[in-house]
């Protein structure tokens, strides 16, 4: 890892101003940033420590929860209100990484985890448009079993690796941001992540020096009946091959509203409007679920090794729907 300096500004404004400069990065838990720095994928020369500058608690509001960006993954997962009324959030966090890393990683850092595409993470491979714009994509003709089938482009087929944002997408969460000049704005999670197109190195709406302050998750009947299903190569401590967050509002046995998102298959949490439409107003039974799940992989464009994800998506959706119905 190359040498760097680390500073601990006394105020958030000083921190955001400092980080707007080139070669400067925020550090929260450090669990992704330090990995990337050890592999020399990220090479900031100055780190700005966010410790103490952003909220780190779960605030229970009348109409939702506000989760501080510096809240630890483990603490949010174990929070009684989150466990009770935002189950998919707790389950997604508990399915992520390991107990040790969940004691270190923060909510804001998790939303900004970089892709796990091995070519991106190994500068020994020259071709990676995300790491080195214009250099090509080694994955498209290489090892791509773990990569994306939806929302990908000719420039990049990587997936967003985090579990939490998938749950947040299904729960219609939004992010509170704050820029270097103190300017605040709120961005829907759905608008936060960018599709790769020709510029896969631009991943989010975040501007230089801008921080995530908190995540707002609105309360809803669907959030109360939500779940996160994660399918992977080993039972635990592994990234998703396919995951699905579902939030289903049932009135007696009829589906009033369903919201679903996929993980592990796209450059951002992937909402499923076709599946949601196929569920709305229908009886919550096996037939409805099976019909709706068939729509989940519409538009999928698998790469050479990940065609199996097309069917696995449908199965993950089906399992998530069955799980919420039984809850």
């Amino acid at each position: 890892m190359q040498s760097f300096t680390i500073s601990r500004p006394g105020t958030l404004d000083a921190a955001t101003a400092a980080t707007a400069a080139p070669d400067t990065a925020f550090i929260a838990g450090g669990t992704d940033l330090l990995q990337l720095m050890k592999q020399e994928v990220a090479r900031p020369t100055r780190l700005v420590d966010l410790d103490g500058l952003l909220p780190d608690a779960v605030e229970v509001l009348p109409d939702g929860v506000r989760i501080g960006a510096l809240a630890l993954m483990a603490n949010v997962a174990a929070h009684p209100e989150v466990q009770r009324n935002y189950r998919a959030v707790s389950e997604a966090l508990l399915s992520a990484a390991s107990p040790q890393i969940r004691n270190m990683g923060t909510i804001g850092g998790n939303l900004l985890q970089r892709t796990r595409c091995n070519y991106f993470r190994d500068p020994g491979f020259a071709a990676c448009n995300k790491r080195e714009p214009g250099s090509g994509c080694a994955a498209i003709r290489g090892e791509n079993r773990l990569l994306g089938v939806l929302g990908t482009s000719r420039a990049c087929i990587a997936t967003h690796p985090s579990d939490l944002p998938v749950a947040l997408a299904a729960l219609d969460a939004s992010l509170e941001l704050r820029g270097p000049n103190g300017a605040r704005r709120t961005v829907a999670l759905a608008d936060f992540y960018r599709l790769p197109g020709d510029t896969p190195h631009i991943e989010t709406a975040l501007q230089p020096g801008e921080v995530i302050v908190a995540v707002l998750v609105p309360a809803s009947a669907g959030a109360r009946r939500s779940c996160y299903v994660k399918l992977r190569d080993r039972a635990s401590f592994e990234f998703a091959l396919v995951s699905c967050a579902a939030a289903v509002d049932l009135q007696r046995a009829t589906i009033r509203e369903a919201r679903l998102a996929l993980g592990g298959v796209a450059p951002k949490p992937w909402r499923l409007p076709q599946v949601e439409a196929a569920l709305q107003g229908r009886p919550a039974d096996a037939g409805t679920f099976a019909d709706a799940a068939m729509h989940a992989s519409e538009g999928a464009q698998p790469a050479s090794q990940n065609g199996f994800k097309v069917k696995l998506i449908q199965r993950a959706v089906l399992r998530a729907l069955e799980t919420t119905a039984a809850a």
Binding site: G30, L34, D49, D51, Q100, I101, N103, M104
Partner: peptide
């Protein structure tokens, strides 16, 4: 609390 010390900076 348990953490991994390889991803922890000593200065922090």
């Amino acid at each position: 609390r348990r953490v991994v010390s390889c991803l922890t900076l000593a200065v922090r």
